[in-house]
């Protein structure tokens, strides 16, 4: 399927490179059309699933006569059903997602791409890949100021709408990620792939609750945790007035004084997040936004490819 690209945040080379890969769900999906994903319902695909004893009412055309010849018993031969996928892209549009590389106190460099730009590229490319293989794509913008909700559909027009919305996204205000995830878990009626793209600057226990809710609803959850290297290093050499990008009170601090404590708090947060991921078994990817997003997505797609599936 050829799709005319009209969005500058999408890279043609990356799209071509990723078009050879397929987006797989880690869990069986329930779709309404035939697709490339496993379904919990037996179907008519070529993939053998299992033998089942014949019960009256079964279609006699599905009896395995060879098995009857060997065992003198009636068995019904069942095959896997292939269905399509619903992918819901949940993009954090809080003010903190507008953060780009912070110029150090000593070097005045130009700001790099922001987390939102990075999220826009990942979400757009994934939407394209999903649409390419006939899956439905939806978009949820998780910001208290900028909130958008586009249910998943599988059409070229719908993809265009989603790409337009991604291009028009703005980061501002506080995050509404937790509310959006809970809401998504409840609103999406059938199993779906929930892709969360956020800096996750909320309490790990809150994140745990969201992921557990989604997993409880049989959703396949994938997380792109976006971070900027300067947020980890916190290397500044003179006092700085830090302005909260989500509208909170500014803080005047001397990084030489609180640097150690900052890094210790960051380490504790990341450890807690690792525990959450380990417990909820979501597909978690911690990413620095300076990393090539094509490589990140390739790694993501290859990581989800079933081993028996060639």
């Amino acid at each position: 399927m050829a799709l005319q690209l009209r969005r500058d945040y999408l890279n043609q080379q990356v799209l071509e490179r990723l078009s050879t890969l397929q987006l797989h769900a880690r869990l069986p999906m329930i779709g309404n059309v035939s697709g490339k994903h496993r379904s919990p319902i037996r179907g008519s695909s070529l993939e053998f699933a299992e033998y089942r004893k014949y019960v009256p009412g079964d279609d006699t055309r599905r009896l395995d006569w060879r098995a009857y010849a060997r065992n003198d018993r009636y068995y019904i031969k069942e095959f896997e059903a292939d269905t399509n996928l619903r992918m819901c892209l949940v993009v954090d549009t809080s003010g903190s997602m507008d953060f780009a590389h912070a110029p150090s106190a000593t070097t005045d460099g130009d700001p790099d791409i922001s987390k939102l730009d990075y999220a826009r590229r990942i979400a757009g490319t994934l939407a394209y890949v999903a649409a390419l293989q006939g899956d439905a794509v939806g978009l949820y913008c998780a910001g208290k100021t900028f909130h958008k909700e586009i249910p998943p559909k599988r059409s070229a027009t719908h993809l265009s709408i989603i790409l337009d919305e991604l291009g028009a996204m703005e980061a501002s205000g506080e995050t509404g990620l937790a509310d959006v995830l809970h809401e998504t878990a409840e609103r999406v009626p059938q199993r779906a792939l929930i892709v969360v793209i956020s800096d996750l600057f909320i309490e790990p226990e809150t994140v745990r609750n969201c992921f557990e809710h989604l997993c409880f609803r049989k959703h396949d959850v994938a997380v792109f945790h976006l971070m900027e290297q300067s947020e980890l290093d916190f290397e500044f050499d003179r006092p700085i007035r830090f302005v909260d990008m989500e509208g909170g009170e500014p803080i005047l601090a001397d990084p030489t004084v609180i640097g150690t404590q900052y890094r210790r708090a960051m380490a504790m947060y990341l450890d807690s997040m690792d525990e959450v991921i380990l417990d909820t078994e979501v597909d978690y990817h911690r990413i620095c936004i300076h990393e090539n997003y094509g490589d990140v997505l390739a790694r993501f797609l290859l990581g989800r490819t079933p081993k028996k599936h060639k």
């Binding site: 903190s96 830090f242 803080i251």
Partner: peptide, 14 residues
């Protein structure tokens, strides 16, 4: 200097 900062939760903790 004044810079916008995202990871305020760690800053306040520090």
């Amino acid at each position: 200097r004044t810079i916008p900062w995202a990871a305020m939760m760690f800053l306040m903790s520090a």
